[in-house]
């Protein structure tokens, strides 16, 4: 069975792809212009990231003087469901199920191998 493409795709991102303006995201679709941040941009596409402000772990916009690392959660999270995306197996490596439930435990396979905690790289021996 093929999985439906776009399943669980976050509403904000979907609207952005359709060219509907979403607060805080680059919602324009073509034409170019100037972002609220004052950055002049050329013609934009459905995947418009020109208006994405880089933020740190505290949710604060990053400026040139900042020494704080940028935060993918705070930067990308307002438009993208990062929590859902990060439940993909590349990220979790056996820590969670498809539903996001934490599944790591001793003797994961119930065959006496207590040292195996999951079926992925996080929990293997």
């Amino acid at each position: 069975m093929r999985r439906p493409m776009g399943r669980l795709f976050p509403l904000a991102a979907l609207l952005a792809c359709l060219g509907v303006a979403v607060a805080g995201c680059g919602g324009s679709s073509g034409g170019g212009g100037t972002t609220p941040g004052g950055v002049t941009v050329g013609p934009t596409s459905a995947m418009d990231h020109t208006n994405i402000v880089l933020k740190d772990r505290f949710g604060q916009p990053i400026t040139l003087t900042s020494k704080e690392p940028y935060s993918p959660n705070e930067t990308c999270g307002p438009c993208h469901d990062v929590v859902m995306m990060a439940n993909g197996y590349h990220f979790q490596q056996g820590r969670t199920t498809a539903a996001g439930t934490i599944q790591t435990r001793d003797d994961f396979f119930s065959d006496g191998r207590t040292w195996l905690k999951s079926d992925g790289m996080y929990g293997k021996w």
Binding site: T35, P36, G37, V39, T50, I52, V53, P61, T63, L64
Partner: peptide, 8 residues
């Protein structure tokens, strides 16, 4: 940006 913030 003109607001001093950084953008992608």
């Amino acid at each position: 940006g003109t607001d001093g913030n950084l953008y992608l």
